[in-house]
C-alpha cells in the first residue's frame, strides 16, 4: 500500500491505495470525485481526461502513485463560485452532449486545447485535437461548435481586456 498525497482542485488530498491503482480509480473511489468517468479503460475514449500539472492526461493510463505530488484538476474543479466555466457554459448553450458520459473528458480536453492554442483555433484543428476523445451520441458537431464558441468567449474577452 502506498500513501498518495496530491493537490486536487486546489486542495491537498491524501489516500491509501495499491501501487497498481489507476489515478482514475483513486480519484473516483478514494476521493469521491465521480465526475471523471471510465469509458473504455484502454486509453482510447478520453472520458477520464483530467489535467495533471496543467496538461491533459488520460487518468485511466496513469498510476495514482505516478501522480503523487502533482497538481490535478478534475471536472469538479473548473467552475468557480457557482459560475460554470466558459467551456461548460458553451457545451450547455450549444447542446454539446446527448447522454453526457463523455462530457467531463470532452470539457477537460477543450479547456486544455483552448489554453494551448492561445486563441488560434479553427474547426479543422478542433476536430483533429479531439482525436483522443470518443462520443457515441452526438456526431461531434455540437461539441466542435461549443469548443469554438468557448474559445471565442475566452480569448475574445482577453483581447478586449488588452485593448
Amino acid at each position: 500500500m502506498a500513501k498518495v498525497t496530491l493537490t486536487v482542485n486546489g486542495r491537498t488530498m491524501s489516500g491509501e491505495c495499491d501501487d497498481r491503482t489507476l489515478l482514475v480509480h483513486f480519484i473516483r473511489d478514494k476521493l469521491g470525485l465521480t465526475g471523471t468517468h471510465v469509458g473504455c479503460d484502454t486509453t482510447q475514449c478520453g472520458a477520464c481526461v483530467v489535467h495533471m500539472d496543467g496538461k491533459s492526461v488520460k487518468s485511466c493510463s496513469i498510476l495514482a502513485v505516478q501522480a503523487a505530488g502533482s497538481s490535478v484538476t478534475t471536472i469538479e474543479g473548473i467552475a468557480s463560485q457557482g459560475e460554470l466555466h466558459p467551456v461548460q457554459a458553451a457545451f450547455n448553450q450549444h447542446h454539446g452532449l446527448q447522454c453526457g458520459f463523455c462530457t467531463p473528458g470532452m470539457v477537460m480536453t477543450a479547456v486544455d486545447m483552448i489554453n494551448r492554442h492561445g486563441g488560434q483555433l479553427d474547426e479543422v484543428t478542433v476536430r483533429h485535437e479531439l482525436e483522443g476523445n470518443i462520443c457515441r451520441c452526438t456526431g461531434y458537431h455540437n461539441i466542435v461548435k461549443a469548443v469554438l464558441s468557448a474559445n471565442e468567449e475566452m480569448h475574445g474577452a482577453s483581447r478586449q481586456a488588452a485593448e
Partner: peptide
Amino acid sequence: IGDPHVRHM
C-alpha cells in the same frame, strides 16, 4: 503520435 493526452505523457 496518439492523441494530445498521450503526447503529454
